[in-house]
Simulated assay, not measured.
Amino acid sequence: MKIEKRVSNQHEDKTNLLKSGDYTAEKVILKIFREFFEINNKVKELLGDKLDNLKVARISYIILYYGLGNRSSNIVENIMNNETLLGVKNQALLFDSFDDGKRKTKIREKFAKNKNITLSDLEDELRRLTVNNCFRKKISLDLGYPAAGGHQTRLDHYFANLLFCFDLIEDQRKNMINEDLIIYKKELISQLNVYEKILLILHSNTSMGQDFKKYLKDYDLKKHIPEGMIKKEEFDIDGYFKTLNQNLSKKE
């Protein structure tokens, strides 16, 4: 997994960079991890106490995953609508908080000169520019690449392969003695560093990661996260697993 290094800095430590300027896989996971919590902090600032932190984390992860580009912003907005994550007022608050008055004024002047452009075209253009550019400006963390640019092309393939590994062990459960099953499960979970484990939990908190939920309980993933690594106000990991285990127990 790689992220092209777009920002050059002669003083930057290059020990974790490939000769091509791409980040190594471990560096990428750490970068994505840091980017999520930076996005999460900004979304929390915009929404305040209007949503609980699990929903804020879901919104933040969706932004992290798809990004806020011209096309991906539509996906993010559509998902938030479909999952009823935000009421109309809260969603307006979120997107309006990315406002850039000067940019809007210039765009309005540009569109005013072209009578063939509809009001809907104008609103779409303003929303794309506002969401894409202004939110990224709020990310102060130096990532070495544009924040909120999306990681779907990286993470989609990564999580698909990881789910295949979980499913493969599950499918072979009936053919194994319990001792062998435990070894396979330990071997798989040992392949994930702590940042990957946390991203897996965050991924499972969205509609994209529902198939992982049963494995979070079965593999007792919570015990692999050092206590205090995630602050409760950032993501209530205890509350998440309590609800998760209760829901899965009901289904069983």
Rank of each mutant, 00 (worst) to 15 (best):
Y145E: 08
D52F: 09
D99L: 15
I237N: 01
K110N: 13
L162R: 05
A160M: 15
T206D: 01
K137Q: 12
A92Q: 12
Y61G: 06
K242H: 00
K104G: 10
K50Q: 11
V7N: 09
E179G: 14
K214I: 10
H151E: 08
K222E: 10
K55A: 09
I62C: 07
E77S: 10
D99P: 01
N245I: 00
G48P: 13
K2M: 14
Q10P: 04
K185H: 13
T130H: 02
Y215S: 03
M208I: 09
F235I: 01
K232E: 12
N41C: 09
L221P: 06
S190N: 09
N78T: 10
K223G: 07
N78W: 08
Y219T: 01
D100E: 11
D52E: 11
D49P: 12
F235N: 07
N9F: 00
T130M: 15
V7A: 08
I169H: 01
Y65C: 06
D13F: 11
I182R: 13
L143P: 01
Y66E: 04
P146G: 02
Y240E: 05
E109C: 06
E4F: 03
L93S: 10
S60C: 04
D121L: 05
F37W: 12
G144P: 10
D96G: 14
T105W: 14
L248C: 04
K223C: 06
